[in-house]
Design a protein around this nucleic acid. Structure first.
Lengths: 183, 183
DNA sequence: ATGTTCGTTGACTGCTCGGTCAAGCGGCCC
DNA sequence: GGGCCGCTTGACCGAGCAGTCAACGAACAT
């Protein structure tokens, strides 16, 4: 799965042949079909796994931080750090979102990420820490900022995570604090 | 190009055969290669064209609005409206960004979009309308919000543009007004 | 030594697809 | 009418790919 993820990220899913994957590992093709029933299943597995890893990182970073706003900040930081360490998953995920075969898995993954964030946002609104707004929409906005800054500054370039994280957090928290969201 | 864009959006670039495109138009395959030298060139052409159209919409919306902050708001609104009318380009663009063959074109397109936004941001900073920050990073953050909200609320669902635009604008302007960006 | 099982191999198959090209066709000029 | 030319056709080719399978072998039990 690690080798396949690297190849998918470099050359794309369709252009990467199963024989490329097994050749890069020096094994025969049969061993691939011993463990996976198809190339599609492999990618689904990679996507599921990546999502689990990212979520685990986020939850570990948040731990039992009581402040919901701080949890959002820590979640953003953890996401950026994880993507930095696992660049390959970024373009794989982006491709998968465009393929109807994988889009459902991706949508579910993103829904989970949104739900996690929504929980913090709702709590922060109740506590009066941020302006009242549509939590789901705000969560999507945050994901959008994180995605875009990851692509530009952590993947295409290689800027220090801390700086990007600080900027992303400042932008998002200001966006939340202001009068964002509709009702 | 219109027919191809629709097919690429529905089934993806690689799974769509040139014969699918010509069949859907009821013409022979040769006519395709009379106008395009390859399938790759077709997609590049579609991407270039989409980018030009979007940019034209944005500039028409902005016209000669003197207030830079208002220009940003109008740009966001115009982008959302354009994507709503041309959903198919959204997933095509997203796919193209993952393929090294097309990524350079996409990166240039995005660079242009960022530059446009950066100009307004710089002006707004000079006028003291928004907080001092790294303009390029802020522009990327705005693009990220627009992209994500487009995907979720205009493409997957079909919510009214005005509401989404209002929320996107509120989030982004608050993000800019706050102390976002690093130096 | 023989048999059995788990894991592995890689040539092979059937199919799809991008791209080619010889042939056809209709309009237009001489 | 005859010849030319811009445009079109779709059968065809070669390449590449996902997935199969008969054969192999190493470890282990008997």
């Amino acid at each position: 799965m690690v080798a396949a993820a690297r190849l998918f990220a470099d050359r794309g899913y369709h252009p990467t042949a199963v024989s490329d994957i097994v050749d890069s590992l020096g094994v025969g093709k049969g061993v691939f079909y011993w463990y996976f029933s198809s190339k599609e299943e492999l990618l689904s597995e990679i996507l599921r796994d990546a999502h689990l890893q990212l979520r685990r990182s986020q939850q570990a970073a948040i731990a039992d931080e009581p402040d919901p706003v701080r949890r959002i900040e820590l979640g953003i930081l953890a996401s950026l750090e994880w993507f930095r360490l696992h660049r390959e998953f970024f373009s794989i995920t982006q491709f998968a979102a465009t393929d109807e075969t994988f889009a459902p898995v991706l949508r579910r993954n993103r829904e989970v990420a949104v739900d996690d964030t929504v929980r913090h946002i709702k709590e922060a609104i109740v506590e009066g820490r941020i302006a009242d707004g549509e939590p789901e929409l705000l969560a999507h906005a945050i994901l959008g900022v994180v995605d875009q800054l990851t692509r530009r500054y952590l993947i295409e370039r290689d800027d220090p995570v801390e700086q990007i994280a600080a900027a992303a957090i400042a932008f998002c928290i200001s966006g939340l604090t202001g009068d964002a969201g509709w009702r």
